[in-house]
Design a protein around this nucleic acid. Structure first.
Lengths: 126, 126
DNA sequence: GTATTAAGTTACCTTTTGATAACTCATGGA
DNA sequence: TCCATGAGTTATCAAAAGGTAACTTAATAC
């Protein structure tokens, strides 16, 4: 309670802000979708691609690389022919998924309210 | 446990996906900063501006409008001279802040790990 | 009649994000 | 010889996000 003021100041510095650092990664178009696609276990590139509706090869590669870079995803290449590549969540990735879960379920149960607020606002602005 | 598979499918449709709908708003450069700036109570435009380091007038206005549009923030104009405008979180906005809190605190306690993963990855790529 | 204040708006420009589509690479099969 | 496969890369382009700086408005104080 009494620490609220302090926390408030901590989070107001945008530069190197840990929250922005994490949320900026997660807040893009595909990261969360990929993250939640992997919570049940490892999956292969093309399996992800066909399961995540609408994602292009390029964006899947790119987003997976970013997730790997941050340590959320582990990439394993099996030297077969043709090559097989598996992606899976790391411990850190599972932690992130768990932390984002509350927001996700909140979003799921409030999106109607948000939608209607948007519609109402847009109507006012003519 | 047994519902995991179902949830998995639910979240893979990007179009009209409630999660993306919410997270896309929150995931931009300033929304979370503003949201957490308002958790202690109402604040005025210029107070926010000087407290949120680095934000421009334009981005503050724009982000506040988007938050208002989604129903997270209430804007009140006091017809004084010069005019006074106060922004405060709505019930919905407080709910969002609470839901995002777990992610925020997770990010706060894991950003070193993420940082070092990034540095390590970047080193590998030469 | 000029400056000040709060809360913006507008114009202009750069950077980042994301999309489409074509190309690569190694190998094994028809 | 040519095609298929899995997992990408590259080139090109359009759209969205974000930054800077100057302008606005209304009333009041100097």
């Amino acid at each position: 309670m009494s620490s609220t003021k302090i926390e408030r100041r901590v989070f107001l510095k945008n530069e190197e802000c840990p929250i922005r650092n994490v949320v900026a990664q997660i807040g893009d178009k595909w990261s969360i979708l990929i993250l939640f696609s992997l919570v049940d276990g490892p999956d292969r590139f093309n399996a992800l691609k066909s399961r995540i509706q609408g994602i292009s090869q390029r964006m899947l590669t790119q987003t997976l690389r970013d997730l790997e870079r941050d340590g959320y995803v582990l990439r394993t290449v099996y030297p077969q022919v043709p090559v097989k590549v598996e992606y899976e969540l790391t411990e850190l990735g599972r932690g992130l998924a768990a932390s984002v879960w509350k927001l996700v379920s909140w979003a799921d149960s409030h999106h109607e309210e948000i939608r209607s607020s948007r519609a109402h606002y847009d109507q006012q602005q003519v």
